[in-house]
Nucleic acid binder design. Structure first.
Lengths: 245, 245
DNA sequence: CGGGTAGATCTGGGATCCGAAATCGGCCCA
DNA sequence: TGGGCCGATTTCGGATCCCAGATCTACCCG
């Protein structure tokens, strides 16, 4: 615990994980004292951790009122995808010139794992059965893209892309969608295949374009998922008054 | 001061400004106590401010040892430019469909202001005379791009692009270069004109490509500036041992 | 004379305490 | 009955204090 990390860092990572994993729904108010007893520390490291999360955009800070898990509007979600599309296009283009056979093998494995889970997902009925596998689906999807980031070896791009990726992995988990959008799930998996083939062919331009389309297509998928949940957008900005839960 | 902001926030902004403006050279060690008496506060808000800066990547945190202003390697600088090239290309493409005549007029004014300063810069001799105007040059350059960001109305893109812009505005200030690269300065100013014209023509694709080239070209300019300073890269990673100054 | 080591000192991390801002809750009055 | 006012309570921001880890320094020993 005390080896090369502070409590504030550790706590920030745990909370970040919880937010990304969708365990903390957007809009949730985070009380400093509650967190401090939850982690058995004083409020000082808690506040430093929250400062970090605020700088990363995961929570929003309101002076003298508290922090809440950031809510994201449809426009913000769209923009996050546009950003990731550009960054991922860049990373994929760069990766195309660096792929080794071992990298390609690893990528193909990740692709197949994702395809398997995607198929399993589509086989399940909507509801809890489908919801319980969404975490795996998100992780498998990330794993595929992470191979590309690793090969591209662009730390800043990777950091920023993952940062904007956080904006939507949560919603995807708690809003699994129904059968009518299974075609989009299937298309998503198929695009992984196309990207891998472009990378295998050593085509930077092709890989770039495919990566960009894929990310933008993923937005269409997520949008479809979210549209179904409540008809209306699920986590719009709620009234900022009355911060108490 | 206390209206809708905390001391930690205020201090973070001040320090951030100092780093971006090049007043704090990379590698400088920031002592909590020194900062606390400088701002007349206790160390608590100082540490929260530093946490924020660390999350933004402006300073690096070493547990139990302190923070220092982040140094940046040539590779990191290059990557920051690649990122900004993609983001700025996106913003410019979006802005092309939104420009009003008023926006265009404002953009042209910023362009001319930058051109004036650029010309003044090239007229000066290297050394202190040139160095003293670099801050204005950087600000005028930012002002031009900021018009585009404002019109594009993509907050996340703007935030991220400005974040990566911070990586190099400092170096540009303290390493003004000599006459041999004046052609690059001139070209830089000329590219602003081309971008504005593409925006005026309502050509998203053209504006996108020009914006991307412009940013990548700016990297060549900065690289040339820095090459001259000491022959070698000026602020490489120093030995991390011995944090004391 | 060089290297290692133990104590002194410095500095950062975290706990506890206090004042201030904001919300809550009950009361009064129209 | 409903709206506004005022004290009580909650929660946050900041200050101060203490402890632990790291560095420095001086001494000792080979």
């Amino acid at each position: 615990m005390s080896l090369d990390s502070t409590k504030a860092d550790d706590i920030a990572l745990v909370i970040e994980e919880a937010i990304v994993a969708g365990e903390l729904e957007p809009g949730t108010v985070l009380r400093q004292e509650q967190l401090s007893e939850q982690f058995n520390v004083s409020r000082t490291p808690i506040r430093e951790a929250l400062r970090r999360l605020a700088a990363l955009g995961l929570v929003s800070f309101v002076p003298n009122r508290g922090v809440r898990v950031r809510t994201i509007s449809r426009e913000e979600l769209h923009e996050a995808f546009m950003v990731r599309a550009e960054l991922e296009a860049l990373a994929t283009e760069v990766a195309a010139t660096k792929m080794t056979p071992e990298d390609l093998a690893e990528l193909e494995e990740a692709e197949q794992h994702f395809a398997t889970i995607s198929k399993e997902l589509r086989a399940r009925e909507p509801g809890e059965a489908r919801r319980s596998i969404m975490g795996d689906w998100v992780r498998a999807n990330h794993a595929f893209h992470d191979v590309i980031y690793r090969v591209a070896d662009l730390p800043l791009v990777e950091q920023l892309a993952k940062s904007s990726r956080r904006s939507f992995s949560g919603p995807a988990v708690w809003a699994p969608g129904d059968h009518s959008i299974d075609g989009l799930y299937a298309k998503n998996a198929e695009q992984h295949r196309a990207i891998r083939q472009a990378l295998a062919a050593g085509s930077p331009e092709g890989a770039r374009a495919l990566a960009r389309d894929h990310v933008l297509g993923s937005f269409a998928l997520l949008e479809a998922i979210l549209e179904q949940v409540g008809g209306t957008w699920p986590q719009s900005k709620r009234s900022p008054a009355k911060l108490r839960s």
